[in-house]
Nucleic acid binder design. Structure first.
Length: 245
DNA sequence: CGTCTTTGACCAGCGC
DNA sequence: GCGCTGGTCAAAGACG
């Protein structure tokens, strides 16, 4: 059973299997990267189309309005969005189309900062709040550890290593695009330490395995680590995004 | 006591 | 002009 011949065969079989898995992993990474790029291109095209629909594209206020969905604890009624700035609440109102109250905040990190934000719990999913920012900050974000911590603020840099429950992302229906766009392009080539042309590698994979692009996509979706990998890519993208809000 | 939040009142814009 | 709605103000209360 444990003859040298048997061991050798076993090692060779494992090596072949490892090689196959490596190649598959490589190809999947590239497919993922390509899909992400296609998604991004489509998303950018969508943004361009939506911005063309804007009633007053030169409106200086509207052009600086951005809207975000932020996941929060549905039991938390405070309507606090931790985005790194210091906000003072100056009003709250129940609006017609949403039973949840809308809170009004002004930025007071710097004197004369014109930025305001409205925060309201999402009607469809109460675990999310909709944060609408108006105007542009005339100052930088609070540096970590600087200033005293306030109830309506946090010291984490804007939209960066925040808790997973408070990662904002743009609302697709908002015609006034937020400054943040989720670039889902993986640094997949770096991860795979591969410098070959992605298209040629993908063609290799498809022809070697006699598979269609649909098969590749289907197997990619079935891949158990697909969702975590996608989530990690999104989080990485948000973290590496310079604060443009 | 100073600061911040809450909340009712007030104001402006818009549609009818 | 009137009523509705969203946005802002400011007095009062809460909190550290």
């Amino acid at each position: 059973m444990d003859s040298p011949n048997y061991d050798k065969q076993k090692v060779e079989a494992l090596q072949v299997e490892l090689e196959c898995l490596k190649r598959e992993n490589e190809a999947m990474g590239l497919i993922f990267e390509t899909l992400s790029k296609k998604y991004n291109a489509l998303y950018q095209a969508y943004l361009r189309q939506e911005s063309n629909k804007r009633p007053r594209p030169d409106d200086p206020v509207a052009s600086r309005t951005s809207q975000f969905l932020v996941k929060t604890d549905p039991r938390d009624q405070s309507l606090v969005v931790k985005d790194g700035f210091q906000w003072r609440k100056y009003g709250q109102k129940v609006t017609k189309h949403n039973p949840s109250p809308r809170a009004y905040f002004k930025c007071f990190m710097a004197p004369g900062c014109p930025v305001k934000k409205k925060v309201q719990r999402c009607m469809e999913d109460k675990s999310y709040v909709v944060a609408t920012y108006e105007g542009q900050h005339n100052h930088d974000v609070d540096p970590p550890g600087a200033g005293k911590s306030l109830s309506s603020s946090c010291n984490s840099p804007i939209f960066s290593p925040a808790p997973a429950t408070s990662v904002p992302f743009p609302l697709p229906g908002n015609p006034f695009r937020p400054a943040i766009t989720l670039e889902l392009t993986l640094s997949g080539s770096d991860v795979l330490q591969n410098r070959r042309n992605p298209t040629s590698l993908m063609h290799d994979y498809i022809s070697n395995n006699n598979k269609s692009i649909e098969d590749c996509v289907a197997s990619l979706i079935k891949y158990p680590n697909f969702t975590p990998a996608l989530a990690a890519a999104v989080a990485r993208s948000i973290r590496t995004e310079p604060s443009k809000v």
